[in-house]
Every structure is written in C-alpha cells, then in structure tokens.
C-alpha cells in the first residue's frame, strides 16, 4: 500500500518506464475514479439537502424532532439520506487519506493517522446507518 520511505527528494520514474509487473494494483485508479463519480452524485444529494434544510420554507429555524420524524416516514428521504451518508463518508475519508499520505512524512505517523481516520469513519457510518434504520417517531 504505502510507498517505501525514500531518503531525500521523491524520485519519479521517467515517462514510459516499464511498469513494475509484480504486486501492482489498480486501487489508486479506482479511488481516483470513485472520487469523480461519487462527487457528481453528491452534488445533487448534498446541495439538495442543504437547500431543503437551510433555505427552503424557513430554513434551519423549522427543524426539530417532529420535522425529522415527518421526513423519515418516507422511504424516499430515508434512501436519500442513507446514500448521501455512505457516499459522503467514503468520499471524505478517501480525501482525508490522500491528504494524510501527502503531508505526514513519517511511516508511523501516516499509519496511525489513517488508523484513527478509518476508525472514526467506520464508527460514524455505522452509527448513521443504525439511526436511519432504527428511527422511532414515538420514542420518549
């Protein structure tokens, strides 16, 4: 996964250098592609969410438990929020992974920052998913 530590400036192979045949994966290619595809979907999901929640019909002032209960009584908004949660979290986590790889220079620092990131992201995705699926409008 992570590149071996290199002393001094990063050496970049010349263009058209033959590919290393062993253990080369396309993970970074798929990650790059995912950021673009999920990004385009998120433009609609997130900007729609922000417009409804913050601008439309009184904006944030009208949001309370009853408002959430009304929205999540509809499978449409449940699906919207679930898809938005997963795509945004994977998109954001992958972006943070890229930034950690770019700026944390020590192998150990990179490793632990990414572990912290994956634990925080995994927890958040699972918690959000659980909340959407187990929401009870008659609680309390």
């Amino acid at each position: 996964m992570s590149a071996p530590a290199q002393p001094g400036p990063v050496s970049i192979p010349a263009p058209r250098t033959p590919q290393r045949s062993s253990q080369r994966s396309n993970v970074e290619l798929y990650s790059w592609l995912f950021m673009r595809i999920s990004g385009v979907v998120l433009i609609f999901l997130v900007l729609g969410h922000l417009f409804i929640m913050n601008v439309l019909d009184g904006g944030v002032q009208r949001i309370n438990f009853a408002f959430v209960a009304g929205r999540w009584s509809s499978p449409f908004w449940q699906t919207w929020d679930l898809l938005m949660l997963w795509l945004a979290m994977i998109h954001g986590t992958n972006g943070m992974r890229t930034i950690i790889n770019d700026y944390a220079e020590r192998d150990q620092t990179r490793l632990w920052l990414k572990m912290l990131l994956y634990v925080a992201s995994g927890f958040t995705v699972l918690l959000g998913t659980l909340v959407i699926f187990t929401f009870d409008p008659n609680i309390g």
Binding site: V68, L85, T124, L127, G128, V131, T134, F135, I139
Partner: peptide, 8 residues
Amino acid sequence: VLDTALVR
C-alpha cells in the same frame, strides 16, 4: 451525524 444520532 453525531448530532442527528440524538433522535435515537
């Protein structure tokens, strides 16, 4: 996500 989880 944490603040929304308070609905539970």
